[in-house]
Nucleic acid binder design. Structure first.
Lengths: 108, 108
DNA sequence: AGAGTCATTGGCTATTTTACCAATACGCCA
DNA sequence: TGGCGTATTGGTAAAATAGCCAATGACTCT
């Protein structure tokens, strides 16, 4: 594969990768409802705050979220609202896969 | 986070993860144009055939592609065409992020 | 200034992922 | 049947990821 094309797919994979963790998917889903600060998300997720903070930095690094420091808190929101479309995509895939599995079983 | 909800996000992340590698993204993109066998993909990707085969099994395991053995070859195609939507999503995200970066530079 | 809260960073370990090589399995056909 | 092309599987080493704790930085309030 050509270097240019490879770089292109690597850039794409970086974005996908940022969304490839349960906690990070949850965060994206959650902040779609409005800004959340780190401790709020930590409370919901149930992991250590340092873990959540690192997840957030992965998302921020991929350009998906944006952290706004106000006082001692950092409020995160979606920087790219269409990141939500991934959740729709994934839901559609899961639905189709589930249906195909059901059909296979019924056919027996 | 509740166990049920957590499981839900894990299932979603599994699909995302399957699409989170440059080679696998390329494969999905490529077989959208029609069936390809493992050695064809290997040729295009430039990795060892065992590596490509394993990438394919990751995709198959996630329900995204389907391998059809005919003779000595195995022909892979998309089992879930809407997996292509991920590529659109990712492209849109990249475009927006790139534009935001440009705007930041211009504003200086 | 000092104590308390909030978030990030560094350090560390355990786990997972990736890629190669070698070995195996399968089908074709001379 | 033996050899060749095709694909998968097992083994292994290197790299990346995830999570926790501890340390640090930054802000607020008294």
């Amino acid at each position: 594969m050509q270097a240019r094309i490879k770089a292109r797919y690597q850039a794409r994979a970086k974005v996908m990768k940022a969304m490839s963790h349960p906690t990070r998917l949850f965060i994206v889903d959650e902040i779609a409802n409005g800004e959340r600060c780190v401790s709020e998300l930590t409370e919901m997720v149930g992991d250590d705050i340092s873990t959540v903070s690192k997840h957030l930095s992965v998302l921020e690094n991929a350009g998906i979220v944006f952290g706004d420091k106000r006082g001692a808190q950092v409020w995160y929101r979606l920087r790219v609202p269409c990141a939500l479309d991934f959740l729709d995509c994934v839901e559609r895939v899961l639905k189709i896969v589930a249906r195909q599995r059901t059909e296979l079983i019924e056919r027996r």
